[in-house]
Amino acid sequence: MSAVLLERPTASIGLLRLNRPEVRNAIDDTVRALLVDHLAALDADPDIRCVIVTGGEKVFAAGADIKAMSVMSAADMAASPAAAAYAAIRAFRKPVIAAVCGFALGGGCELAMHADIIVAGEGAKFGQPEIKVGIMPGAGGTQRLPRAVGKFKAMKLLLTGDFISAREADGLGLVSEVVPDAEVLPRALALATAIAGLPPIAAREIKRAVLEGADLPLADGLALERRAFVQLFDTKDQKEGMMAFLEKRPADFKGE
């Protein structure tokens, strides 16, 4: 069976499920390649408006595959396709929800941080424990974590390798919301369904403005936002949304 399963809970939602329970969903080059392939297909599919990434009931992903990395040299790691894979994941244009139960550690935490929304179960644990095996995060942990929780909280997690609970992660701003473990996937599906019912072009532009604007000076970010805002007035969805509002009826967004 594939290490990453693609499911279609509805016509407009794609669900990617990490499926290596024997190694606690450790992320290796095969998993990354499958994620890239599936995301490329979902990005090109006009019917798909939102994607959920999840793991198992007890482990989202416990990190990278340490067994595979233990024999690698610096040259081996430099030649790894991992960096290109994560770049492709970052480039995915549609909203992504991470549905996290259990451990999201190391590469698993980094994968979750690639999402736009994180729904965590009450029993979830987050952390970047790479320092405990002699390395450091290599898929964005030193960059995304400080942006999410601030320098000092991030430094404590990165330099100690300690884990934090879902409630602690929520308090730090690392997750969007915390729900009972049994409700993680249903809640993610509910959010995905709500997003899928909204105009997909606007959703993509919101995501692009937030991600690209985060690394720009404020004036440049505001200019980026304004350009995207103006361009949306040439979409049929804008006309439909505003007419539906004025006519007090549900809007029917076509992604046009």
Results as ranks from 00 to 15, higher is better:
residue 124 A to K: 07
residue 35 L to T: 10
residue 20 R to I: 08
residue 146 P to W: 11
residue 198 L to C: 11
residue 183 E to D: 15
residue 152 F to L: 12
residue 251 A to L: 10
residue 189 L to K: 09
residue 177 E to T: 14
residue 42 L to W: 07
residue 227 R to W: 01
residue 43 D to L: 04
residue 9 P to Y: 01
residue 253 F to M: 13
residue 226 R to Y: 11
residue 137 P to T: 05
residue 120 A to G: 05
residue 115 A to G: 10
residue 18 L to H: 05
residue 189 L to C: 03
residue 166 A to D: 00
residue 130 E to D: 15
residue 91 A to K: 13
residue 19 N to D: 15
residue 173 G to Q: 05
residue 211 L to P: 02
residue 218 L to D: 09
residue 196 A to T: 03
residue 237 D to T: 04
residue 124 A to D: 05
residue 200 P to W: 02
residue 83 A to T: 13
residue 248 K to H: 14
residue 245 F to V: 09
residue 116 D to N: 13
residue 15 L to M: 14
residue 171 G to I: 03
residue 159 L to I: 00
residue 168 E to F: 08
residue 234 D to I: 02
residue 166 A to E: 00
residue 6 L to F: 08
residue 191 L to E: 02
residue 7 E to A: 10
residue 187 R to F: 07
residue 216 L to I: 07
residue 202 A to N: 12
residue 139 A to Q: 09
residue 227 R to G: 09
residue 27 I to L: 12
residue 147 R to D: 09
residue 24 R to I: 06
residue 149 V to Y: 01
residue 181 D to H: 03
residue 13 I to A: 03
residue 102 G to I: 09
residue 213 G to K: 06
residue 95 P to G: 09
residue 72 M to P: 07
residue 98 A to E: 00
residue 181 D to G: 01
residue 172 L to P: 07
residue 47 D to G: 15
residue 126 F to Q: 09
residue 177 E to P: 01
residue 116 D to A: 05
residue 207 K to L: 09
residue 192 A to P: 00
residue 149 V to K: 00
residue 181 D to Y: 03
residue 239 K to C: 05
residue 112 A to I: 06
residue 99 A to W: 11
residue 15 L to A: 08
residue 159 L to M: 14
residue 171 G to D: 11
residue 53 V to E: 01
residue 209 A to P: 01
residue 215 D to C: 06
residue 179 V to A: 05
residue 169 A to Y: 00
residue 72 M to T: 13
residue 97 I to F: 07
residue 216 L to V: 03
residue 110 E to I: 00
residue 145 L to E: 05
residue 213 G to V: 01
residue 152 F to Q: 14
residue 100 V to Y: 04
residue 224 L to N: 05
residue 40 A to M: 07
residue 102 G to L: 08
residue 87 A to H: 08
residue 251 A to S: 14
residue 153 K to L: 13
residue 237 D to W: 04
residue 231 Q to G: 13
residue 164 I to Y: 06
residue 11 A to C: 04
residue 33 A to K: 09
residue 150 G to E: 04
residue 4 V to Y: 08
residue 236 K to S: 14
residue 23 V to H: 07
